[in-house]
Each structure stands twice: as C-alpha cells, then as structure tokens.
Design a protein around this nucleic acid. Structure first.
Length: 110
DNA sequence: GATTTGACTACTA
DNA sequence: GTAGTAGCCAAAT
C-alpha cells in the first residue's frame, strides 16, 4: 500500500486526530499538510469526508463559524455534535474559539 | 486537456 | 466597518 489515495487521506488523518471538544481551521490543517494558503483544498477534501467517516464537524473556518454545516445531514447536526463535546456554539459560531482551537502543527509537531 | 468548482484566508478599496 | 477581489491547489466535469 502506497499512500497514493491522494492528499485527501492526509486531511482525513489529521481531522481524525482532532481530540474531542477541540476544533481547528481549514488553514491550520492546510498549513500542517504543507499547502498553507490553500485552505480550500481542505474544504474540498471534506466534500468526500462523509465517505471516510471523518469528524468534519470539528473543522471550522478561521472565524470559528460552522461554514460547512449545510453539508451535514441535519440542519444543526454539526452544532449539536460540537455542543455534545463541550464546545459552545451559538448561531453556527463557536464561542471561546481560542479555548477550543487545536492546531495540528502545534500539537503534533512539538 | 481546459474549464469550473470548492466546507478558505488575507489583503485592499 | 463592510465589501469585493485575488491567491492557493487539486479534483470533477
């Protein structure tokens, strides 16, 4: 097996490493993958995240807003999942983002 | 093979 | 402070 599945797998791998009650941004993941500046790629990868069982609900944009909640099944499913993990989400926006923010390049690349 | 899209980010006016 | 545009790169059509 050669990881030729694409860089998608790398995105999924990082997202799966996100601890419960923590969130990260697309740019942070992109930065960790070495494609910083291309946060869109992370979002693009998430398009198939549901086929990989990736907790995409822990991935939000730089503002802590659940931009991709529309890609989830329910209308507020993404918010419910985050709140279930102890993350305070109001109006699709995460409160105390800095308190819940999880940077892969900071936590993994110590 | 070229064009379009895509769950973003940052800068500029 | 708000709005718009540019830049990033890869996959899908």
């Amino acid at each position: 097996m050669k990881s030729k599945d694409g860089f998608f797998e790398r995105v999924y791998e990082v997202v799966r490493l996100i601890p419960e009650g923590r969130v990260t941004s697309y740019g942070a993941i992109a930065n960790y993958l070495g494609i910083k500046g291309s946060a869109r790629m992370v979002g693009w990868a998430m398009n198939s995240s549901h086929t990989k069982g990736v907790p995409a609900h822990r991935v939000v944009n730089r503002k802590g807003v659940l931009t991709g909640k529309h890609h989830f099944q329910g209308t507020n499913l993404m918010q419910q999942l985050l709140e279930n993990e102890g993350v305070v989400v109001i109006d699709n926006q995460i409160q105390n983002l800095e308190n819940h923010f999880w940077d892969p390049s900071a936590e993994l690349n110590r």
